[in-house]
Design a protein around this nucleic acid. Sequence first.
DNA 1: GCTAAATGTTGAT
DNA 2: TCAACCTTTAGCT
Length: 266
Amino acid sequence: MPEGHTLHRLAREHTRLLGGRPVAAASPQGRFAAGAARIDGRVVEAVQARGKHLFYEFDGLAERLHVHLGLYGVFSGGPLPAPDPRGALRLRLTTDGTWVDLRGPTACELLSPADVDRIAARLGPDPLREDARPALAYRRIRRSRAPLAGLLLDQSVIAGVGNVYRAEILFRHGIAPTRPGAALDAAEWEAVWRDLVRLMRAGVRAGRIVTTRPGHRTRRRGAPTRADSFYVYGRAGLPCRVCGTPVMSDTLAARRVYWCPRCQPV
DNA sequence: GCTAAATGTTGAT
DNA sequence: TCAACCTTTAGCT
């Protein structure tokens, strides 16, 4: 399931698998049949991620394919032969060597360059992009009295952070989810941004989110297990890995937030 | 076989 | 603030 690291990993993978090659496109489910027909047979020129959005460029086609996985969307793929399409398969792309399947996305559509620009324009800096300008995010945060837990999930403030990274970054910096943006000083912001870049890059490499330091895991040697990967996300009621206080959780703006009341005092 | 939950966003109220 | 939407899977029965 997708936070920004998943999309950047997919952009790289799809560039490697599909880039420079003609693809056959089909929408067995039918909901993207017209779009698939326009892509079918074209060469993939580039695949890019911006925050949680993916954009595909095709030779000779001004429009771009825009994919947003939403909460449930998922890609799968492998070497040919492709398995028979099963279930709700929105899009299948096939080259002479590989197949890529897309299921359950919130968005799978062809967009004009202007529409793509519009989406890009409403996204904040993406920690996984070299061209990110973190000062733009801090300007928004510093001016806001809204809780940081909300600001971190706001894609127009920072693009690519999701519910796991937000909970974990706040823990790692000892910041309560309810702390107003305006109360985050410049040095704290600097540290938070640098940490996001580091954690999300590691997420792209590993293909999953790991935020715990080795000394804070139950198993201190070897690769972290799934249960060892987070400090607070999904751990309501379990003892904090650092101080043992039970981890708290609450619903904020329809999303669940997790924090340690002792390590992250208000 | 059914239900709820899931790392998300949008649009209505 | 809430419901709707897209789909799969885990955990029940």
